[in-house]
Design a protein around this nucleic acid. Structure first.
Length: 413
RNA sequence: GGGGGAGUGUCCCGAGCGGCAAAGGGGGCGGACUGUAAAUCCGCUGGCUUCGCCUUCGUAGGUUCGAGUCCUACCUCCCCCA
């Protein structure tokens, strides 16, 4: 991609955020000429965002850092519909109460990445329920429905998956892209917002908004999408076996968050450093060039920097130190998750494994033990009927582990 | 309204002459090898008080010693005709 004139696009481009831009030259010129306003929408489908949304959040942050004004749009209204883009089946409908409580959970994370306020480059948080909830159906159809043709909407790739699979695409969901387009128009009118960013799966939806802006207000709006982010082996960002990589600390501890980045694949390190940290590019290039086992140092830096972005420097360092003692010295480092159990009467090993989250049933725990996965104080155990008692404690705790990476410190209740 | 087809292990895809806890993938977890990586190989992948018992194939009934498999009704979806 050629050099841009604006800092904003240059940085996004160099760091690998850009997949497509609707009219790069014109957007670049506007961003060069003065502060622009751009937004990204977030739907409230869960009580926390996960690592998959991190790229979007970082884009908003860069936007602010380069002198522009970011808007975080909460999908209080659109979540009631559910985005069908590239989904092979419809999502369960969320209750209004559920959406409201999800929004509360999601909001907190933005304050860590953005500075909110009323100033020219202060970030705003708005909720599309503010305008979507009160739309008058007939008026809306007459004013905006005329600008959309079914012919065109059916041509979008985002709905093809559903249609090709002969899965139902309800009229409710089909309206999602219209409402998202309308959001863009509304933000452009209310906040002079000219840019919508999002994942590449959002391209179709965003372009609809651009179209609407042109037709209704003769105004040029822009789209900028990020590449679909996967790990080198093709897994989606932000999902692991044990579930999503949540950003809220009450759902995923800073230690586990640090571990997520630490376990990145070699081939991803450079890309991730660019996207998920603010480290200067020359430094990243140096780290990325490390070969063999030295790249582990780069991964530790990635983990600590990425965790710092979310949880702060001190917490990140603490997670790094806990990991260092656990993995490099093999100690039962304080800072590992702890678990209170009855050690006087003794607690069965199976129950302890379930309580520690190593297994979801006794049967699963039993199989893990038979497979040699469970260790007590770093000694493999094979007796599934074993009782955990005070006699096993060293330094007041029993270290219970599964595999190389999962450890819990058991304390007397 | 008429005709045809589909719904399988609560992660997904998907086989399944009436004997089935149900083939095979993918994914995941664990082990070996390594560098807390990748690749490769091996094991596990419904629940329990585990020599056995219990619950699973859209839902509810029925036939049968025995039903994911056959019959009936219903639900949901797809296609064709009206």
């Amino acid at each position: 991609m050629s050099q841009f004139k604006s800092d904003f696009l240059n940085i996004l481009s160099e760091r690998g955020f850009i997949h497509q831009i609707s009219d790069p030259e014109a957007l670049d010129a506007q961003a060069k000429a003065g502060a622009i306003t751009g937004y990204i929408g977030f739907d409230a489908t869960a009580s926390s965002l996960h690592a998959g949304s991190l790229v979007q959040i970082m884009m908003l942050r860069w936007m602010q850092k380069t002198g522009h004004r970011p808007i975080a749009l909460m999908g209080g209204g659109t979540t009631k519909i559910g985005d069908p883009s590239f989904k092979d089946e419809s999502r369960k409908m969320l209750s209004v109460e559920q959406i409201a409580s999800n929004l509360d959970g999601i909001k907190q994370v933005f304050t860590k990445f953005l500075t909110f306020g009323e100033g020219a480059t202060d970030a705003r948080m708005v909720n599309n329920a503010d305008w979507l909830d009160h739309l008058n159906y007939i008026d809306f159809l007459r004013d905006y429905g005329v600008h959309f043709t079914i012919n065109r909407m059916l041509s979008f790739d985002s709905v093809k998956l559903r249609l090709d699979r002969e899965q139902p695409l309800t009229f409710l969901e089909f309206n999602y892209m219209i409402l998202q387009g309308y959001d863009f128009l509304e933000l452009s009118r209310r906040h002079n917002c000219v840019l919508q960013m999002g994942g590449s799966d959002q391209w179709g939806n965003i372009v609809n908004g651009i179209e609407l802006g042109r037709r209704c207000d003769q105004k040029q709006l822009f789209a900028l999408t990020t590449p679909l982010l996967t790990t080198s082996s093709g897994a989606k960002m932000g999902k692991t076996a044990s579930g999503a990589v949540w950003l809220n600390a009450d759902l995923l501890s800073p230690y586990d968050y640090w571990q997520y980045w630490r376990n990145s694949e070699d081939a991803d390190v450079t890309r991730f450093l660019k996207l998920y940290t603010e480290m200067p590019l020359p430094e990243i290039a140096r780290l990325g060039a490390l070969g063999g086992s030295e790249i582990n140092d780069a991964k530790k830096i990635l983990a600590t920097e990425a965790t710092t972005m979310l949880h702060g420097r001190a917490t990140a360092e603490e997670a790094a130190e806990t990991a260092r003692r656990t993995f490099e010295e093999g100690q039962s480092a304080a800072g590992l998750p702890t678990l209170d159990l009855d050690l006087d009467a003794g607690t069965g090993l199976l129950a302890a494994c379930v309580a520690a989250g190593f297994a979801s049933s006794n049967g699963e725990a039993r199989r893990s033990i038979q497979g040699g996965a469970i260790r007590i104080n770093d000694q493999a155990v094979s007796d599934e009927k074993l009782l955990l008692t005070r006699a096993m404690m060293t330094d007041g705790v029993i270290k219970l582990s599964m595999g190389k990476k999962k450890h819990v410190l058991v304390k007397p209740a």
